[in-house]
Design a binder for these strands. Structure first.
Lengths: 201, 201
DNA sequence: TGGCGCATGTAAAGAGTTACATGATTCC
DNA sequence: GGAATCATGTAACTCTTTACATGCGCCA
């Protein structure tokens, strides 16, 4: 048995705000939840069908008569109930799988400077996300009166704190490891030269 | 097509340090990589076999004659080469899937106080991990002369920075949301009473 | 002799990714 | 008429999880 499916919950959560189509859901997850949730295309439509079959959502627009007609779904009381129960459960901690840090950990087994380049690029990507988040936040600021506004604020804050910490780490680490790698690169070059000489004998 | 398998790389990385058995690998990943990598039990042994078949590791102890005999593996030049190539590739960013933050985002759709309780528990777990990391760090401090020591230091630092930010966020958020939820709980109680009266009519 | 830790493995099932196929509508 | 965007969906594949099976050696 694999773990239980989690795709359904962000869908139910979004439908709590207002009825949406599969396409909308995808855009919404991509656009506003993307800092802490991702959903792959091939997962949304089957999940919508499952949720409809189990009575947690209903189709309120589009009868699937015409092909590719826009289907809009709304959450039902049962759906709201299920979501409520899930929220109350203790969240399963995402066991992390961070390729970036794994590569940092192994940096001495990779080509010279490769991981330092990864760190520099990571720093840049974080900076870009930071700017994007700031932009999104100013957009959301207009809905100050929305009841979810305070919670959204805390999530922006979460992202900001993490990204700040990440940037600080990148700077620290580059400062600490760049001179080190340069020194080792020199040493390695010497060794290689030495080896070559020996092999040439 | 799913993404390419990543289990093999932490295994190769650990075997770069010294030869290990499947059991050791599991313990090592659980014990020292656990802040940024996880590996499920059922994945290690099949991966070891695959790596052996493709010549990236070799068995240097245990002939599989006796059942359940300890099998120790060492990395080969080919394995080292493959690992090197993988490290040089740009790391794929982990698209996040954070149930905890998803529940925070939906907190108004869950039972009163449930998510605040999650946040309090989260804070506690982070504090525990913080202490565990500090302990591990003092242990590692003894190997100052080890060539990987500077890199390990930066990884400890990464964990410390993230956990600090996480704790700060928990405190901030609890301070911001606790009074809010109390106020809303009161309002909701009034509403419910009102509804009941109406239904009793 | 019975329990615990070391140790290696297998099987089933489902979750999730990727890539592709198809068609409607809008706008130039 | 054609390109871009909106929109729904399927198929193949494989990774990962979970739970279980097996057996050795130690030691109280």
């Amino acid at each position: 048995m694999a773990r239980t499916q989690s795709t359904q919950y962000p869908i139910l959560g979004l439908l709590c705000i207002k009825p949406l189509s599969g396409y909308d859901l995808r855009a919404e997850i991509e656009g506003t939840l993307n800092s802490f949730w991702r959903e792959s295309e091939g997962q949304i439509y089957p999940t919508l069908r499952m949720l409809e079959e189990t009575g947690q959502i209903v189709r309120i627009e589009g009868q699937r008569k015409q092909a590719r007609e826009r289907q809009v779904y709304a959450i039902t009381d049962l759906g709201r109930q299920r979501l409520r129960a899930w929220i109350a459960e203790e969240p399963r901690m995402q066991s992390p799988r961070n390729e970036f840090l794994l590569k940092v950990w192994m940096m001495r087994h990779g080509p010279e400077g490769a991981v330092l380049a990864h760190i520099r690029q990571h720093r840049q990507q974080v900076a870009i996300r930071m700017a994007a988040a700031a932009e999104l936040q100013t957009l959301v600021e207009r809905n100050r009166s929305f009841p979810d506004f305070p919670v959204w604020q805390t999530l922006f804050r979460y992202g900001a704190l993490m990204r700040e910490a990440e940037l600080a780490w990148c700077d620290e680490t580059l400062a600490a490891l760049e001179p080190l790698e340069r020194r080792e690169a020199k040493a390695a070059t010497c060794t290689r030269k030495g080896k070559k000489l020996i092999e040439q004998r």
